[in-house]
């Protein structure tokens, strides 16, 4: 598919979503679509690392939380417009992503995963502990001001909904461009065999770092949208359970197909909300459903994963 065609498809998709949301005029539908947009973006951003670079991050929610808190705190100063605050937040995310990423990408496999977890929990401890700034476990209180800009008033739920969908779809298209670019193919090469990539002249570490930062930026953007949506920010946004949720989303949907994480996010949110609505024993039902999907539909999800795994170097246990 050409980039132009993708752009058109993306625009059509966004238009359809917005049309559905606005024409039904139902707050519940708008709520559902907004959350799906935000979590789809979170899952897509994580998949730059997991699916395309082969780096399983256990700490991706740190960017989500970082974005939500930095943006929320900036807005609460009442001295800055929404686009400016978002730009500053994304810039700050770049710095944080570069610093933490430079350290994390020195490791591989499960050690990388645990280091990302450690960084995330460090950030979480700061958020939870710095009560005078962040409100600690109560989150950012008093609401997040949403002054109008360029004729857009995000205090209107409908306008916020339209903006959320547009930003999410544009971000998805941008991520698509990134993974389809030569850079994206270099990432796949690193994922499949880092040694060979290095041998072929790919600057492996630099590319990994760039992927880490890019993934963080989009994760942070999802966090910004979330803070606008809930008009606040909570420590949970940076907690490891949300990282776990994001991983579950991409595994459910599939990590090798570009839209897999989107479908995973939809499936996960649907399961979460629907099961919680129908039964108090949502833990048991959700657990069984997850088991059935992971173990039962192995052929659907795991076949693809298998291909990916086989193309990597064999595990040490399997070596003679």
């Amino acid at each position: 598919m050409t980039a132009r065609l993708e752009l058109i498809l993306g625009a059509v998709f966004a238009a359809v979503l917005i049309a559905i949301g606005l024409s039904l005029g139902d707050k519940a539908v708008i709520d559902v679509l907004m959350r799906l947009s935000i979590f789809s973006l979170l899952a897509l951003s994580l998949n730059i690392l997991v699916g395309y670079t082969g780096l399983v991050s256990f700490g991706h929610a740190m960017f989500f939380g970082f974005g939500a808190y930095v943006f929320g705190l900036l807005m609460q100063t009442n001295a800055i417009s929404i686009p400016a605050a978002a730009a500053v937040t994304l810039l700050a995310t770049c710095v944080w992503g570069a610093v933490s990423g430079a350290l994390c990408i020195r490791l591989t496999e499960i050690y990388f995963s645990f280091l990302t977890l450690a960084f995330q929990m460090l950030l979480y401890s700061v958020i939870a502990g710095w009560v005078s700034l962040t409100g600690g476990d109560q989150g950012l209180m008093g609401g997040i001001p949403r002054p109008p800009f360029l004729g857009i008033d995000l205090a209107q739920p409908r306008q916020l909904f339209v903006l959320t969908v547009i930003v999410s779809v544009l971000s998805a298209l941008a991520i698509r461009q990134i993974v389809q670019s030569p850079f994206g193919y270099a990432l796949r090469m690193i994922r499949d065999n880092a040694e060979r990539a290095r041998f072929l002249g790919v600057p492996v570490q630099r590319y990994k770092l760039q992927a880490f930062v890019l993934s963080g930026i989009f994760g942070s953007l999802a966090g910004i949208l979330m803070s606008l949506y809930v008009s606040g920010a909570y420590p949970n946004f940076a907690f490891w359970t949300l990282s776990g949720d994001a991983i579950i989303m991409i595994v459910l949907g599939g990590i090798t197909v570009f839209l897999g994480p989107v479908l995973g996010a939809v499936l996960f949110q649907f399961l979460n909300d629907y099961i919680n609505r129908i039964t108090e024993h949502h833990g048991m039902v959700m657990g069984v459903v997850l088991l059935v999907i992971v173990l039962g539909l192995r052929k659907g999800v795991l076949d693809v994963l298998d291909e990916w795994r086989q193309s990597r170097k064999p595990r040490p246990e399997a070596a003679p």
Binding site: V56, S113, G244, M284, M286, L295, L305
Partner: peptide
């Protein structure tokens, strides 16, 4: 299987056992 599927199976059991 990779760590992702292991994570999912374990997570499913955490939900089931807590409940």
């Amino acid at each position: 299987a990779d760590v992702l599927s292991q994570l999912l199976v374990c997570y499913a059991f955490v939900l089931i056992l807590d409940d």
